[in-house]
Amino acid sequence: MADLKKKRMLTDKIFKVIFLIFISLGLVVLAALIYDIVSKGMVMLDWEFFTRFDSRFPEKAGIKAGLFGTIYVIGLMIPITFFVGTATAIYLEEYAPKNKLTDLIKLNIANLAGIPSIIYGMLGLGVFVRYLNMGRSVLAGALTLSLLVLPVVIVSAQEALKSVPDSLRNASYALGANHWHTVYKVVLPSALPSILTGFILAISRAIGETAPLIMMGALTFVMFTPQGIMDSFTVIPIQIFNWTSLPKVEFELVAASGSLLLLILLFILNGLATFIRYKYSRK
């Protein structure tokens, strides 16, 4: 007995140490990366960096075009994804008949979440840019990114809806509420914090995406900000990608400044998601 207990405790300790090593490994790499980006990124970072367009000279290069492009594309993408994603999840979880076809659709949506993003870029190029004649516009970019994150948004919203206990639905029905009232007034409000959390994390993924937008033909060197949704554009990660591929070494510092900006944006979004989750889980 005592022997067994000792053995168990030993295994326990060994695994603890192993896990600790792996975790610290991850943290060290992360810290090194962040330190690298921050230290290099701070060199060229000033207010002008945000107000200048790109340039052939590193000291004159700015992120304005990418920043505005990102704001436009993501700003347009947010309402599209939120409404389509949430509505789809509501339909699948609350309205769709429970049969094989529904199961098949759910399974396929979950699978779509695993498709490489560049495939979505090709789809965007084929469907939005060429077939629907939208050109390489903000709209085409926003729609492409929407397609990319929709599976993730739908699946996380489905999970959020599923986690609303049936006892709440029953309480609502027993008061004489109809289906829509129950969904709209009880289920949705209860699920909203989780839906939003999943949604924000999906958006922050979209902000960092480069491949699908390059694929669908977003520009790399842009000297203007988009004025409408049919204008062409570039985004922050594409600018970073472009700077890193330029021969002049100083561009590495410019790229680091861009990365720093991207990093800060992502921190803010993740912080927001954490805040929402924390605020509502305490209740």
Binding site: P165, S167, L168, N170, A171, S172, Y173, A174, L175, G176, A177, N178, V186, P189, S190, K283
Partner: peptide
């Protein structure tokens, strides 16, 4: 059925208040 459930109320085994 809506009207029926309005006229015949129900209280469940486990308290199930809405998170409101």
């Amino acid at each position: 059925v809506v009207n029926l459930r309005k006229r015949i109320g129900m209280v469940f085994q486990q308290p199930n208040p809405f998170p409101k």
